[in-house]
Amino acid sequence: MSFRIQNHTCIGIRVLFIVGAMILCYLSTSNVYHAFMIGLFAASTPLLTKFSFKIAFRRLMMPFLFVSIAALTVALELSFNTAGSPFIKVVFSKESFAFAIQLFLKSMSVISVVSLGIAMISISEMTAFLRFFRVPELLIELLVMVHHSIQIIGHKTTKLYTAQKSRMAYNGQFKNGLTCFSLLVTSIFSSSLNQIQQQAIALDARCYNNKLVWVLPRKNIKSIQLVWLTIGLSIITIPVFFI
């Protein structure tokens, strides 16, 4: 059995699921629950989206690095000894360690939820959802353009980096690496700018009227999908009361 629903309802269900999961992660103080959420959402990303395990893992690596540094900063305490030596002592207290672990797990659990959310909701769906909530058009347009520019820059960077590598760039010498990197940055800037200009021309050619209107296909929701949604909600909610 399947029934037809409005697009923003469909997007709304997903957004509410993600926001709900984020709130649960934020409110929970249990490390086990946070670890459970990290595992659950990291594993769900390749299953629910078209990303492979490798890409899903890579997507979490960058925030993992930042959160690890932040947690380490919290865990380590510096004490200054003005009277004798050593002058600076790095202290590793039990309380600060526990707090750092909690901070790390909580942050990573929220990041895994957000990561799945970003992978599940496309920019056009996000636009439809924001329009439904009467968010000013200028902000929506800005969001879409920033998103698109990031995509273009990412795409160009990959291409230019490959082109550099194929011509013996980054050969291990520091000076060479630095020169190549500065050239890469300059080229990315000019070529991305050029492509963004081209994009503007292409938009004009298709009657772009200073408003990005997306028409999404009608969605059919099957009963089984609602069952899965209920199961998903139960999986993330029930442990809060037990862990």
């Binding site: 920019i123 056009s124 698109h148 994009q199 021309i201 292409a202 209107v213 997306w214 028409v215 999404l216």
Partner: peptide
């Protein structure tokens, strides 16, 4: 330089919309 939408469907529908 022409593609703007996140899916093929929306790309084809873009001009029409």
């Amino acid at each position: 330089s022409q593609i703007i939408a996140p899916t093929v469907y929306e790309e084809v529908a873009f001009g029409l919309s």
